[in-house]
Simulated scan of single mutants.
Amino acid sequence: MSAPEGAADAVPGPPLPSLLTGVKDRTSRLLHERMADEGFGDLRYKHGEIFRLIDDEGSRLTDLADRSGVTKQGVGEMIGELEQLGCLERVPAPDDRRAKIIRLTARGRAGRLAAARILGDIERDWVLRFGRDRVIALRHVLEGVVSES
């Protein structure tokens, strides 16, 4: 089935995926600049990909690997780095002393809170710049795109 006539050029400009990548890159750069200002300059983008997935009560490495789509070895390396940075700790699982639970330390919780606050600040700036209704509409469209996958 072919697209309706004119559908391919209905919205001029660069491809939306390119714009979305630009938004992600800019937001990440702003986040990490502000995180550095607050004493978390040692945290990197790749850390956030695992950091944000850790449950409040802690998570198993295998669960983090499943959620992130990263191999257990890759997740283990990032956990090791975050452990060295004082953001995570490994503790025995209550139901299986051989297994380990990865959980946030006080520094890790502070970093997670700082990141959430900074991302909220960035979004509030968008509301001021572009208007609340437009940001809400953007959110709805993006949530719809993400929920399709």
Rank of each mutant, 00 (worst) to 15 (best):
G74R: 06
D55V: 09
D56R: 15
V70D: 02
E89N: 12
K46I: 13
T62A: 11
G76K: 03
D55Y: 11
G58W: 04
R98L: 09
C87M: 01
L61N: 11
P92D: 04
F40C: 01
Y45Q: 14
L88W: 08
R52I: 06
P92A: 05
Q73I: 13
D63Y: 14
E83G: 03
R103C: 01
E57I: 12
E83F: 03
R67K: 12
T71H: 11
D42H: 10
R52V: 09
G80P: 02
L64Q: 04
V75Q: 06
Y45I: 11
K72R: 14
K72P: 05
D63T: 15
E57R: 15
D56L: 13
K46T: 12
A99H: 08
S68N: 01
D55P: 05
G48Q: 10
T62H: 13
T62P: 03
M78F: 09
A99K: 15
Q73A: 14
R67L: 12
E81N: 07
E89R: 15
A99R: 15
D42W: 10
C87A: 05
L88G: 06
P92Y: 02
R67D: 01
V70F: 10
A93F: 00
E77A: 15
I102H: 11
E81V: 14
I79T: 12
I79H: 08
G41C: 09
E83N: 13
E89P: 10
Q73N: 12
D42Y: 07
Y45V: 14
I101D: 02
I79S: 04
G86Y: 12
D56K: 14
G69M: 03
L88E: 00
G108K: 14
I50T: 08
L104E: 01
F40I: 06
D96E: 07
I50K: 05
I101T: 03
S59I: 09
G86V: 05
S68C: 03
